[in-house]
Design a protein around this nucleic acid. Structure first.
Length: 804
RNA sequence: GCCCGGGUGGCGGAAUGCAGACGCGAGGGGCUUAAACCCCCUUGAGCCGAAUCGGCUCGUGUGGGUUCAAAUCCCACCCCGGGCACCA
């Protein structure tokens, strides 16, 4: 009889839940393991990406539990955010109602997977119990000057009617809806992540259990550049401007300067100039140009200001241009242009007929344009003859001595723009008072509750602005009339500290007890999609460092070990509703069961890699489970047999292999030894096996399968007469004596080609291996009288005879 | 343009001194009135031999190199995927 996955899976899901097998107690006497899958947005439908994520996570939860760890594996909901609000705009249904219905649905689906969480610790970021502490976090940052409001040019999505962080702009378009992003000046809230930039960069080196790829992405995102900044005076005026360069050694090659169109000095420089009209037209065009147009590389355009700059090293006067290839947001918004050593400057110079001076000698065969490589400095007075490094050092010292400039480090990373003109998020706990200015809502008045609104449609400001009796309030400081901040927080704020809240999820007088966090943090294993490699992980690292600084966290890095899983693809592209290529996990729960689906996700390929979906593969893992099921439940004839020891040895080798593979987080190679062991066991049942060996091999197989296919494993554990809960049984150890092989098949090569194989003792000496190899008939045929010139012996696996 | 990954049968993928484990697919056989399920066998390409067994040659994107030995290490190139991108 084939196994009834529906009945068995329902039975065990109920048992695990009612017996609270996976509830984590705060017990500092036990070694802990904090295992966390990135908490999901409650979209309402479990997809294969979730299944893959939770299958990996649950395998680890169950494995570590069997290894005796006190495992914390919580689940929660990233439940604020745009999709629920956009749905509300269309349907009028309150986002809360919608979100909570979807949480209910997804909870049921996750339980159908058999993935175990401590549901007593469930949290959802839209609950006042949670966002109250989100607001608390905001106030902590405010108190230390790390939250501030300022007018800034921002990325504005005209469709969603909200501001986007730089990180949420992809190819000049809104990450969510694809609308081309505009630039707008608005007063916005920021977190000062740049205060932490050096630590965020330096501590990446400590994260040696993170994928290199993710560390590199973060490093590039932070974008540290060393160089010099210095002052350039404007000729015939008191004005001057600062520039930053990574190539101060090329300063003698400066033949013009460029200011960004938004540079504050521009207006003064062009006033009254013959180029004023032309320049104004250019500036206004640049400000209207969408981000995407400005970003498209190509022809560099610009206009002269008519003003001249004075090169501080040699007093040479060069023209000052305005061009949009210089960005106001990076460095000082002004550059010294050195076309000889910078391709962008070269392009600009050749277009406008400007002078080009090489100050680095290119190689003799150089036929390119700007030369950016290393070489001897030329045309540079006291720098001549120095290489790049020496010249940089020399000129930077010179600039510092003269008081003209200084060593400078620049970063690509900007402060984190956290305000959103949307409804479905944590209200920012600030009140604006005409006399006191911006005043924080006192901690004991938190949470600032999100009020209900009538109209969710975006109008350029948060829908909260329309709730007059909410907006109108009194100043906590002077008691006078004041108005509430109507922006809400970016949902990345919610997710930047939720892993702390899981350590003390019900606390209603503090965000979390530092003592509890001290026991559970850091997260030992964090599992999720690589799409969070930059934003979420960077923000979470920043907030953790902050919480550490204010005494709430004993760790300054939240995630000790990070695992990023690959995507599931079908027909060459990522499975997604919009592509219409989804395979619904719920259908597979019904047709093949959660165990077969889980096993398929483990087996399909390396967990880090993308994997091409093949429903036949689920059929395959189902067949494997069913074969094992029938073998255990239908075998009833036993006899003494001589091959039992070899079968037992194979079983113990499987224990070793599976254990080692789980430890190194590679699951696809942990399944084949189980499949071959089941096949060998079936073979042994056909040819004769004794009861004792059969039972031992079955017991090992059940335990090894327990973290991967838990339902069928638990049922078989019970079927084979055990009264204990398999989930908390100890993980099996392998018998070293059985694993070690007495004899090994040695490969015999002649001139590097395999010519024969021979069974030899595992501890064979090289000389003996050579003697045996030379005695083989086939080997003699290949040597054919020639002399053996060299013997490379790697006993007992291989020996290579080199003949000439 | 710069920085990461990656190219192995019909397919997903194993393999760090034996290429193709394991699974899927395909082909053949058994069971069956029949089909499905299940069980057994075959399955990189080419070739040799009185040939269901034994053997040979080639073969891991392309071209070189190092080595007794290369999918694996090195160099160059091609292709695919990802990240960043006028960052001075």
């Amino acid at each position: 009889m084939s196994y009834d996955h529906k009945q068995i899976e329902a039975k065990w899901q109920e048992r695990w839940e009612s017996e609270k097998v996976f509830r984590a107690a705060d017990d500092p006497s036990r070694p802990k393991f904090y295992n966390l899958c990135m908490y999901p947005y409650p979209s309402g439908a479990l997809h294969q990406g979730h299944v893959r994520n939770y299958t990996f996570g649950d395998l680890l939860t169950r494995y570590k539990t069997m290894r005796g760890y006190n495992v914390l594996s919580p689940m929660g909901w990233d439940s604020f955010g745009l999709p629920a609000e956009n749905a509300a705009i269309e349907t009028g249904v309150h986002p809360r109602e919608n979100t909570e219905a979807q949480i209910t649905t997804m909870t049921r689906q996750i339980k159908q997977l058999g993935a175990m969480y401590d549901w007593d610790r469930e949290l959802a970021s839209h609950h006042p119990d949670y966002y109250r502490w989100n607001q608390w976090l905001f106030l902590q940052l405010w108190d230390r000057g790390l939250a501030y409001k300022k007018e800034a040019p921002v990325n504005w999505c005209p469709k969603d009617q909200t501001v986007l962080a730089n990180e949420q702009v992809v190819d000049g378009a809104c990450e969510r809806c694809g609308t081309v992003v505009e630039r707008k000046n608005l007063a916005q809230w920021f977190f000062k992540i740049t205060d932490y930039v050096e630590r965020l960069l330096a501590d990446l080196d400590l994260l040696d259990e993170w994928p290199d790829r993710v560390r590199t992405m973060q490093r590039n995102w932070i974008g540290r550049s060393e160089g010099a900044s210095f002052t350039i005076p404007v000729a015939g005026s008191d004005a001057s401007f600062e520039v930053f360069t990574t190539r101060p050694d090329t300063i003698f090659g400066m033949t013009f300067c460029v200011l960004a169109p938004e540079h504050p000095l521009v207006a003064d420089l062009i006033a009254g100039s013959e180029h004023e009209g032309e320049a104004r037209a250019y500036i206004s065009q640049a400000s209207r140009a969408s981000e995407i147009e400005r970003m498209s590389e190509g022809e560099k355009t610009g206009v002269p200001t008519g003003a001249q700059a004075i090169n501080p090293v040699n007093g040479k006067e060069v023209p000052i241009y305005i061009a949009d290839y210089v960005l106001m947001g990076y460095g000082t918004g002004a550059i010294m242009a050195v076309p000889g050593q910078d391709q962008r400057d070269w392009d600009f110079a050749t277009r406008y007929g400007l002078e080009i001076i090489r100050t680095v000698q290119p190689p003799d065969d150089w036929d390119g344009e700007a030369f950016v490589g290393d070489g001897l400095t030329v045309n540079s007075e006291f720098l001549d003859g120095l290489d790049q490094a020496a010249a940089k050092l020399r000129i930077t010292d010179w600039l510092e001595e003269k008081g003209i400039g200084k060593r400078t480090v620049q970063y690509r990373l900007r402060d984190w723009l956290i305000s959103r003109q949307r409804y479905w998020g944590s209200p920012i706990p600030i009140v604006s008072c005409p006399t006191c200015g911006l005043v924080p809502v006192p901690e004991d008045q938190l949470p600032v509750l999100l009020p209900d609104v009538q109209d969710y449609a975006p109008k350029g400001q948060s829908p909260l602005a329309g709730v007059e009796d909410w907006v109108a309030t009194t100043c906590p400081s002077c008691g006078g009339d004041a108005r509430r901040e109507t922006d809400t927080m970016d949902t990345f704020v919610d997710s930047s500290w939720y892993f702390f809240r899981f350590t003390d999820p019900h606390n209603d007088h503090i965000a979390f007890e530092p003592e509890k966090a001290r026991y559970w943090m850091a997260v030992d294993q964090y599992i999720g999609g690589v799409e969070h490699a930059i934003l979420h992980l960077l923000y979470a690292r920043f907030i953790t460092k902050f919480l550490s600084d204010i005494g709430y966290s004993a760790v300054s890095e939240p995630f000790a070990r990070l695992f990023t899983q690959g995507m599931i693809t079908l027909g060459g592209s990522k499975m997604s509703k919009s592509k219409g290529n989804v395979v619904d996990p719920l259908d597979l729960f019904a047709s093949h069961g959660a165990d077969a689906l889980r096993l398929y996700h483990l087996f399909i390929g390396p967990p880090t890699d993308d994997a091409a979906w093949d429903t036949n593969g689920v059929e395959g893992t189902w067949r494997f489970l069913d074969r094992f099921w029938r073998l255990v439940t239908e075998t009833d004839r036993f006899e003494n047999a001589s091959t039992n020891r070899e079968l037992l040895a194979q079983a113990h080798r499987a224990v070793k292999k599976v254990t080692e593979d789980i430890e190194r987080f590679v699951f696809n190679t942990a399944i084949p030894p189980l499949m071959t062991l089941v096949n060998s066991l079936a073979e042994a049942v056909r040819t004769g096996i004794d009861r004792e060996t059969f039972d031992e091999v079955v017991e090992l197989l059940i335990k090894l399968l327990a973290p991967m296919a838990p339902h069928i494993s638990h049922e078989l554990w019970e079927c084979t007469g055990h009264r204990t809960m398999l989930a908390v049984e100890p993980w099996p150890e392998w018998d070293g004596g059985l694993v070690a092989q007495a004899t090994v098949v040695m490969v015999v090569q002649v001139n590097g080609k395999v010519r024969d194989r021979v069974e030899v003792p595992a501890d064979i000496a090289p000389e003996e291996a050579e003697r045996i190899a030379l005695g083989l008939e086939k080997v003699q045929g290949w040597i054919d009288g020639a002399s053996v010139q060299k013997v490379v012996a790697r006993p007992p696996n291989l020996i290579n005879l080199v003949v000439g």
